[in-house]
Amino acid sequence: MGNSRAYPVFRTSDAVEAWTQALRLKALLEYHDDEVTLMAEVLTVEDTRRMAAVLPDAEFRYVDPPMDPVTHDYAEFSLTITTAEDSALEPELPLETLHYVEAGTLEERFVRAVGKGMASIGWGGRWPDDAEAERPGVAKYDGVEVFFNGDEIDWSRPADHHTVFVHVDKWGDLPRAEKLAAHLGSTVLGDAQVGW
């Protein structure tokens, strides 16, 4: 039970640099999951088409779905992004997607497709045992996440920079986070946030 604690350990205005630093941390995991989690919010028609080209099998949903005033059911996004006219797609924005892919297959293309909306790539895994850490690694909680266009892992606040987070156990393991940040030549950049 519970969620990981995610510490921000690197911040930059360059999306590719953020992704590259996240990969450096991912390489330190004792093992990582076979799947990677991709999440994106698309705000413009161009961003939507670019993201749909990278994730053709992904389901896109409304960020704030409209409600039918009679049935009180929430509307589902039903346009085909690749064939919809710009004039039909634009009023449907913003949209979001959550998609899982095999690790190492689409992450680079995903980074290059990120537009103005918030987005993230998350790799779950397990940190190796470390005598300097407060606790052993835990596969349920450990991992690395790069968050584009934001610095709050809960998607609450857009920003004009990108943040790399390390996830540790639900009690927080500041010594481990500090050591991981130091691997990037950085420091922990803020308090632990509630992670996955």
Results as ranks from 00 to 15, higher is better:
Val42Leu: 09
Val101Asn: 02
Gly104Cys: 02
Glu17Arg: 11
Ala84Ser: 12
Val138Asp: 13
Val138Leu: 04
Pro128Ile: 09
Val146Asp: 01
Met51Glu: 03
Gly125His: 08
Ala133Gln: 07
Phe77Gln: 03
Tyr100Ala: 08
Gly2His: 07
Ala119His: 02
Ser87Tyr: 08
Asp154His: 12
Arg157Gln: 15
Ala159Thr: 05
Ala15Phe: 07
Gly137His: 12
Lys26Gly: 00
Asp33Thr: 08
Pro136Gln: 04
Tyr31Leu: 02
His32Leu: 09
Asp33Gly: 07
Ala119Glu: 00
Ala88Asn: 08
Leu95Gly: 06
Asp130Ile: 13
Leu180Val: 11
Arg49His: 14
Gly117Asp: 05
Ala84Tyr: 11
Ala58Gln: 01
His162Leu: 07
Gly185His: 10
Asp86Trp: 08
Arg112His: 12
Glu145His: 01
Thr82Lys: 14
Thr82Cys: 06
Arg49Glu: 08
Glu108Pro: 03
Leu43His: 02
Arg49Phe: 13
Arg24Thr: 15
Gly172Phe: 10
Phe77Met: 02
Leu28Ile: 14
Leu25Ile: 08
Thr97Gln: 03
Pro136Met: 06
Asp129Met: 03
Ala177Tyr: 10
Gly150Asn: 05
Ala6Leu: 15
Val16Trp: 12
Glu30Trp: 03
Glu35His: 14
Val16Ser: 09
Phe60Trp: 01
Asp33Lys: 13
Ala53Asp: 14
Trp196Pro: 13
Asp73Pro: 00
Val144Tyr: 02
Arg112Asn: 12
Ala139Lys: 14
Ala192Glu: 10
Ala88Ser: 11
Thr12Tyr: 07
Tyr100Ile: 01
Leu23Gly: 06
Glu96Arg: 12
Gln193Ala: 01
Glu132Ser: 09
Asp191Phe: 01
Lys26Arg: 15
Lys116Ser: 13
Leu89Arg: 05
Asp173Asn: 10
Leu55Gly: 02
Pro94Asp: 04
Val70Arg: 15
Glu17Pro: 06
Ala40Trp: 11
Glu76Asn: 06
His183Cys: 02
Leu29Cys: 05
Pro66Arg: 07
Pro128Arg: 12
Lys140Val: 10
Asp169Gln: 10
Val138Gly: 04
Ala84Lys: 05
Gly122Arg: 15
Ala192Thr: 05
Thr44Trp: 00
Met39Gly: 09
Arg5His: 13
Asp33Gln: 09
Leu180Phe: 11
Asp57Gly: 11
